[in-house]
Design a binder for these strands. Structure first.
Lengths: 149, 149
DNA sequence: GTTTATGCAAATTCTTTGCAATACT
DNA sequence: AGTATTGCAAAGAATTTGCATAAAC
């Protein structure tokens, strides 16, 4: 594992509580694991790295976290829903949502942190709850490997 | 069927040819059916309305149409990929792509025709091929039915 | 002790593929 | 004849659910 742990046990617990999520050993473990992913992750990613925990438990935990706005989902057209954790440096309210980039070669999905999603005008009567802005293409690493331009 | 047929047999055939797609009776039938949907449609929608044609044939036809840029796909997080046909009044090149609105109540996905997707700046090295901009929320009809605001 | 969370097993849904049969040129 | 298209059947992948057990409050 090449990742640096950003959050202490205590901080993980506070984050859960802040979002009105009851503490359990498994939820702490799952959230801790989520922070290990540099980019986004899907259910299978978590299932593999948390192989003692049942898939359905992870699934229901993701649903709970999403309902409590501790994470949000990204549809990148890869065939599985990706997730990323909402933290204070990674804002997820509707006006400050960030966009994502999905590489069609390596299948990774990156957060585009530096810019918010530009909003467009909605006709009267439509109520926006969330926005998904995903650019698909080729990331720098895969471009170099495949000598594309 | 409350839909008005917008395209004649002849126009359907021309559209296929224009996109370098060989004509077959089934492809003409499928494209004609696609135009009947006011909004977007998915594989199952077509499977139901074209119940004499096999699902895998429809699937492979969609892939072909998409490769030839006769239609484009939309990931709206509904669990199935939606499609909509690219016509001259419904531009689909990357700079002129339109956004979509997905209603979480009725599960319909609407094209937002009046505005192009605003582009955001990509860091050096990223190559964009397509963009997916989908707003999720509640459509006017469902808002009224459920007395929401 | 009652509510909530978890694991196991399996169902469901959506997508995709192999292969044989058919149609087209 | 040879290539492209289609149908059938089934595989694969991702998601979701029912129910019994275990944990938390």
């Amino acid at each position: 594992m090449e990742n640096e742990i950003k959050y202490t046990e205590k901080e993980i617990e506070l984050l859960l509580k802040k979002h009105g999520i009851r503490l359990t050993a498994i939820r702490i473990l799952i959230l801790k694991e989520m922070f290990k992913f540099k980019n986004t992750f899907n259910l299978t990613d978590l299932e593999i790295s948390l192989d003692t925990i049942d898939k359905s438990t992870i699934f229901r935990t993701i649903i709970l976290f999403e309902e409590q706005h501790l994470l949000h989902s990204i549809e990148d057209g890869s065939g599985s829903v990706k997730y990323c954790v909402c933290t204070q440096d990674h804002i997820c309210s509707i006006n400050e949502l960030h966009a994502h980039f999905h590489c069609e070669v390596c299948k990774q999905t990156f957060c585009i942190e530096n810019e918010h999603i530009p909003l467009i005008h909605l006709e009267n009567g439509f109520i926006a709850k969330s926005i998904n802005y995903t650019i698909k293409g080729i990331c720098p690493k895969c471009k170099d490997i495949n000598h594309m331009n």
